[in-house]
Amino acid sequence: MSSIADNIGSVTRRIQKATLLAGRQPGAVHLLAVSKTRPPEDLREAFAAGQRAFGENYLQEALEKIEALADLEGIEWHFIGPIQSNKTRQVASAFSWVHSVDRLKIARRLSEQRDQSLPPLNICLQVNINEEDSKSGSRITELPELAAAIGELPNLELRGLMAIPDPDQPEADLRASFRKLANTLKRLKTDYPDAGPLDTLSMGMSGDLELAIAEGATWVRVGTAVFGKRPVKS
């Protein structure tokens, strides 16, 4: 059975190869190790192998890991799960990035509750790219107004967009979903140049990261290919 370090090496090579094939600059794409449900020991092993950015979906679980791994200098925490209004204070305090902002109310609370001593909180707007009723995220038509309003908030840095396209759609449709998100970001950057850097596309996972990179991903969110399959609950 391969180790977490071996897995990180394999995923990193996949990212590098896909980046090269897409004609993009080396280092243009970053690996976000999705560590939900994984014990702190697994994250510590990944850190020892050179991984620094970890994505968490569940706040309480994440806070426990952040405390357990507080000795790891340079570790970077990304929140990638749904955000409830009553949890924004803890998210604003504990994380460097939030990939799952989908409405102005949440953004305002994160801005108000971000400690002034901390750097601005990097955020991505989550987009319901396939307009699925079961998925969180803003509709594309809502993004211009949302981006303009968030650009006025202090303590936040609007970095870009995140989406979780339907992984079961045909490859051509999946690629089209990634391209649609990339084109949406380009339009926002042109129309709202003062809203934030707008330099980030958080898209692509273990099974489709090559497609996402070909269409412009800058963060790929990878769990299974890094940590292995989650144990089946009894």
Rank of each mutant, 00 (worst) to 15 (best):
L201M: 03
P231A: 15
Q169T: 12
K65S: 06
Q113L: 14
A212Q: 03
G196F: 06
M1Y: 10
D199P: 08
E142C: 07
L201T: 00
P119R: 09
R175P: 06
G196W: 03
L63G: 01
G160M: 01
L146C: 05
P165H: 04
N183Y: 12
L69E: 00
T37N: 09
Q84L: 11
A22D: 11
G216R: 01
R179G: 08
S138N: 10
R44T: 04
I213L: 10
L31M: 05
V232M: 12
N86S: 12
G204K: 01
A49S: 11
I8W: 00
F79M: 04
L181M: 13
W219Q: 11
Q16A: 15
S177H: 01
S93M: 11
V127C: 03
L201G: 00
V91Y: 01
N155D: 09
E215A: 04
I83E: 02
L72Q: 08
N122H: 14
Q90K: 15
A62N: 06
E215K: 05
G74V: 06
P167S: 04
R179Y: 05
T218Q: 05
M203S: 03
L161A: 07
H78S: 11
L158T: 08
R108C: 10
K87I: 02
S10P: 02
T19N: 03
A33N: 06
D194K: 15
V11E: 06
A49G: 06
T12V: 03
I15M: 09
L161C: 09
T224A: 10
T218I: 06
T88Y: 03
T88P: 02
K229D: 14
G81F: 04
G151H: 06
Y192V: 07
W77T: 04
V29Q: 02
T88F: 04
N57T: 04
R221E: 01
A68S: 13
V29F: 02
A225K: 01
S111I: 07
V222D: 03
S202H: 05
D102Y: 10
G228F: 04
L20E: 15
L59H: 01
L121F: 07
S100Y: 03
A217W: 00
I8T: 01
G50A: 07
S3W: 09
E76A: 13
H78R: 10
V98D: 00
S117Q: 14
G207H: 12
E132R: 05
W77N: 03
T88V: 12
A94D: 06
E145H: 08
K189L: 07
S117T: 14
A212G: 04
L43I: 15
N86G: 10
C124H: 07
A148L: 14
L104M: 11
G9E: 08
P40E: 08
L59R: 00
A214N: 05
T224E: 13
I140A: 09
Q60N: 11
V222E: 02
S85C: 10
P40Y: 09
L201C: 00
Q25L: 13
N86L: 09
T190R: 15
E112K: 14
L104I: 14
